[in-house]
Nucleic acid binder design. Structure first.
Lengths: 100, 100
DNA sequence: TGAACATATGAAAATATATTCATATGTTAA
DNA sequence: TTAACATATGAATATATTTTCATATGTTCA
């Protein structure tokens, strides 16, 4: 009997887990939903979600670090938008499962 | 200006986050990969991944609770398999992002 | 029934994560 | 240059999560 299990490179597995971790927090999901409506600055996300500016900023950083959102400065404000088509698709796949 | 952000029901958001949390751990991803090769019992997963029986068992429970794996007893052993077509698709979407 | 085996589970310890608070940084306009 | 504003960030705290260890539960077979 062959007990071998074929896995992706360990580094890729960690990256994959890290990616899903980003989706595994309701605050970040809410931010991603907000951004799916279009580009928004930090304030308006914070107000729209009724959360602290600091909380949003910390979480936006995580989205940025994981290349799920990107930032663009315009004057004093920084506008964020989704940085990847996969974002919506991944969320939709998840919803499919959750709603079934 | 309209500051409204349209979000899914808060309960659904939490369920969605919980679902992605399941994918957000490399041990569980490895188990899911193992099961994507076909049904396996706990021992053979543990051996294949070189991890503790207990660790695997704890994580299999999480997969079960989230309806991502299902269990079937056959004698002393319990065979697990993936319980949802979405699993592979969600992982593939994640890989697309990670590999790009 | 009892021994051997496969799996599950509770509790503890180790680690990771999210939020808050205070404050720093960067930008604009007076 | 200074005041006012928008955003970012470090540190502390609170909370969650993973793994390990010990042991319980369920099954088979002698």
């Amino acid at each position: 009997m062959d007990k071998t299990i074929t896995l992706p490179d360990s580094e890729i597995l960690y990256d994959l887990a890290d990616l899903f971790k980003v989706f595994g927090d309701s605050t970040r999901l809410r931010i991603m939903y907000a951004l799916s409506e279009g580009e928004k600055n930090v304030q308006s996300i914070a107000e729209g979600l009724a959360m602290d500016q600091s909380t949003i900023s910390h979480q936006l950083r995580i989205l940025r670090d994981n290349k799920l959102a990107r930032a663009r400065r315009e004057g004093k404000q920084i506008y964020y938008s989704l940085d990847d088509d996969h974002v919506k698709k991944i969320i939709e796949m998840g919803l499919d499962h959750v709603l079934e």
